Simulated scan of single mutants.
Amino acid sequence: MSDRYHPTLYQASTTATTRILGWDSVSCAVGITQTVYPAARPNAVLLASPTCYPEVLAATRLMHHPYDAALLFTEGDGLEDTVSRELIRLSPRGNGLPGQVIVIGVMPARTLHDLADLGFKLWHVIGHDLWETIEFLNELEIGKKSGNALLVSSDPCAGGTVAGGYAAHTGAPILFASEQGLYPSTVRWLKKHPRTRVFVASPEAWLPARIAGEIKALGSKVEAWVGGADAYDMSVRFAKFRHKSRFGWGKRERSSSPVTLVPMEPWPVGTAASALSYRGKYTPLLLTKRDVLTTPVEDFLRGLHAREQTQGQQGHGFIVGGFELVSYPVQMRMHRALTEGGLDF
C-alpha cells in the first residue's frame, strides 16, 4: 500500500498545525515565500543553489533588516518557471541595496541571463571559494551590533540548520568548524572581531572540545555550547536556550510563540524556513525525521501544551514540507502533543 497521502483524505493543516507544502527544496522555498510574503514585498530575494550548505546557511542572516530578504532556490542550468513566476510575484524593492536579487555563490551563466531578462537588478555575492563568500556575508552590517556569533558544524547532519532561524531573527553571523577544528575563514573572522561572544550549536560529538581553547586564543570566548545527544535533541535545547546577555529563544514557560518543525533532510528546507523565525511568528526551528517525531522533540511539544493550556491558549506549530518530507503520522503526533499532551498514536 502506498504511503503517499491523498490531499482529499488527509488535510494539510489542523487546528494546531499549519503545513507549508512542497516536495523538494525549490518548491518548499516557494511555499514559504508565499506564506511569509502573501501580499507585502520583500526588500530583496536571495537566490541560491540547494547544494552548498555553509554558504546558504550563512546567507540566512540577510533575511534580517535592512536586507529583509526572502530565500529561493534554483537548480539546473536555467531558472525554473515556478521560480521565475515567484520572483515576479514578489517583485523585491531593493531599497538601499546594490540589487533586488542577491545571487549567492556559484550560479550558471544561463540563470544569470534569465534573471537579467526578467528585468531584475542583480547583486552577485561570490568569492574565490565558498569560504570567502561566507566571510563577505558575515562582514555585512546587519541588525544591531551585539558582539555575538553562532558557530556550527559544516555538516548539515549536525543540525546547524536551526542556527539559520536565529541568524534571520537577529542578524548574527554564522561561523563554521569541523571535526578537525575551526575553518581558516572562521579564524580570520575572529581575528578581525576580538571579544566576540561565540555560541556553539552542535551536538558535542560533531566538534572537538578544543575549539573553545582555539577561540580563546583568538581573543574571543565560547559563552555557551548548546549540545545534545543528537541533532534533534540539540534543536530542542537551542529552542529553550537563553543566555544572560539575552541571546537565545528562551522558549519556556513565559513564551507563547509557535514553533516550526522542519525535516533534517533535505537541509535546504530548514534554511528557507528561517524566514518564519524573523517575519510574522518568530518561531524557533525544530528538526524531525520523515517518519519519526523523536522523543526530545515530542516531549518538548507536550510541555508547550501544558504551559499554553494554563493561559487558555492552544499551542501551534508550522510544518514545512509535504507528506513526502514529513509524514502524516508525524503531523498527528505533533498535533496531539500540542493539544492533548501527547497521547499515544
Rank of each mutant, 00 (worst) to 15 (best):
V187Q: 10
G317C: 12
C52L: 13
G96Q: 02
E340D: 13
K145P: 08
A39P: 04
F300G: 08
G341N: 08
S220H: 03
V101E: 00
I104W: 06
R41Y: 06
R197F: 10
E55P: 07
K251W: 13
V236C: 08
D291Y: 10
R279L: 13
L325V: 05
F199C: 07
G160D: 04
E204L: 15
Q331M: 08
V30H: 08
A44M: 00
V162Q: 15
A177C: 03
A205T: 15
P38K: 01
Y328Q: 13
T14F: 07
L79P: 06
G164C: 05
R19G: 02
F199W: 08
V222N: 02
V36Y: 09
Q311W: 15
V101P: 06
R333L: 10
F136E: 11
K121H: 10
D77S: 15
D299N: 15
V125I: 10
L301S: 05
A273C: 14
Y166I: 01
A163D: 04
L287P: 06
K216W: 03
N148P: 09
G315H: 09
Q34I: 00
L175D: 03
S153V: 01
H243D: 15
G143V: 03
W267M: 03
G280F: 05
V259F: 10
K251G: 06
T271P: 05
T161M: 08
T294C: 12
R333S: 14
R41L: 04
F73K: 01
G315F: 07
C52S: 15
V56C: 07
W267P: 06
G181P: 01
E141H: 14
K191C: 02
L87P: 01
Y232W: 12
E265D: 15
E298G: 15
L112P: 03
M63S: 08
F247K: 12
V56P: 13
P266K: 08
L261H: 08
K281A: 14
C52A: 13
A201G: 11
E298I: 11
D3M: 12
L137C: 11
H65K: 14
T133M: 01
F300R: 11
I319D: 09
P50K: 00
R188Y: 13
S178M: 05
K191G: 01
R307Q: 14
A109S: 15
A40Q: 12
A29I: 00
L301R: 01
R237K: 14
V226E: 07
F120M: 03
Q180L: 08
P194F: 02
T14R: 11
G160E: 01
P50N: 08
L71W: 00
